[in-house]
């Protein structure tokens, strides 16, 4: 393994982690404020991709127009959902809210199928960013991925400044923990909730716009991302923006490393026995014969399989040893 490979893999992981963060940031804020786990959150991510595809490619306008416009549209849509859906359901308790968002996720998925069809849309990167930024050894790093990193980092900085340095941010932070007090002070708490919901969905949409050209734009996109996002906000600590960032980075980078590494039990066995100078006939056999052995599944087990399990394993461990999450504050 060479340094070029390691560098680009880490950068790939960084890009992945940062777009996970864009989606989970909204989800974790919405949760801490309203106590609602929004199952439809990943659906807004997918809608972002579809809307951008329509604007940039079907209508022939530019990606650069879709990039600012689509989050505004989806953010407005999110506010409508909060104002006329969630707020109405709120008085029936958390279960009703949960079921509402669950139903909404299905609704959006079926809507997408009905309007756009179930095939994979040829949503591609903008022309300007198709090339590679730099090449180390024989591995090149695409300029589009650098763009993804740049956008995500600027959003994080902007969000951080907004929440810690502005009056609005201070009110939001206060509303997170003491909504009644904030309301008694004369602030319009429902408006704050609606705005946070809107910003959260807009961020998810932004993530969809920039991430889906490297993935597959199809009605299954939300269902694929959804579980990972939940894992991230649990691991990071529900309601903690910094926690979501840390967890996104951990999961994004480590799953990328798992995907890129080619370690398997049999490889390790081979390396160890080679070092010890032992010749072992099992290792000479072709892979397909090894798979058929009784312990085949075990000795062929590779980091690829572990990589898919890793986020969930991490979540279970966190729930056991640090239930409030890495940077979460709440005990409950």
């Amino acid at each position: 393994m060479d340094w070029g490979f390691i560098t680009v893999t880490l950068l790939d992981g960084l890009a992945r982690g940062l777009y996970y963060f864009l989606v989970s940031a909204g989800l974790t804020l919405i949760f801490s404020m309203m106590g609602v786990l929004n199952f439809a959150h990943a659906s807004f991510f997918m809608l972002g991709g579809y809307f951008a595809y329509i604007i940039a490619q079907e209508w022939g306008l530019s990606f650069w127009i879709a990039l600012p416009v689509v989050p505004l549209i989806i953010g407005a849509l999110g506010m409508v959902v909060e104002r006329y859906g969630l707020r109405h359901v709120h008085k029936f308790g958390h279960v009703a809210e949960l079921i509402f968002t669950f139903g909404l996720a299905f609704l959006i998925q079926e809507f997408v199928k009905l309007v756009f069809g179930s095939d994979t849309k040829p949503y591609v990167k903008p022309e300007l960013l198709t090339g590679s930024l730099f090449t180390i050894g024989d591995q090149s790093f695409g300029s589009y991925r650098a763009f993804m990193i740049l956008v995500s980092i600027s959003i994080f900085i902007g969000l951080y400044l907004l929440l810690t340095r502005t009056r609005v941010g201070i009110i939001i932070q206060a509303a997170l923990t003491h909504p009644n007090t904030v309301s008694n002070l004369g602030h319009n708490v429902p408006l704050i909730f609606m705005s946070v919901f809107g910003v959260g969905t807009a961020l998810a949409a932004l993530a969809g716009i920039i991430a889906l050209p490297t993935d597959a734009l199809q009605p299954g996109a939300a269902a694929r991302l959804g579980p990972i996002i939940f894992v991230i906000i649990v691991v990071g600590g529900l309601g903690s923006l910094n926690g979501a960032l840390v967890a996104s980075m951990i999961i994004g980078i480590l799953t990328t490393i798992f995907d890129a590494s080619q370690l398997s039990v049999i490889n390790v066995m081979e390396a160890v026995t080679n070092m010890l100078g032992i010749e072992w006939s099992l290792l000479e056999r072709p892979t397909y014969e090894l798979r058929r052995l009784m312990v085949g599944d075990l000795i062929m087990m590779s980091t690829k399989q572990v990589g898919a399990l890793f986020p969930y394993l991490l979540m279970v461990l966190i729930l056991i040893f640090r239930p409030q999450g890495l940077l979460g504050k709440r005990e409950s």
Partner: peptide, 11 residues
């Protein structure tokens, strides 16, 4: 379950 096949292509 693979979100992004870039690491595979790199290999």
């Amino acid at each position: 379950q693979v979100q992004d096949f870039t690491p595979y292509a790199r290999n």
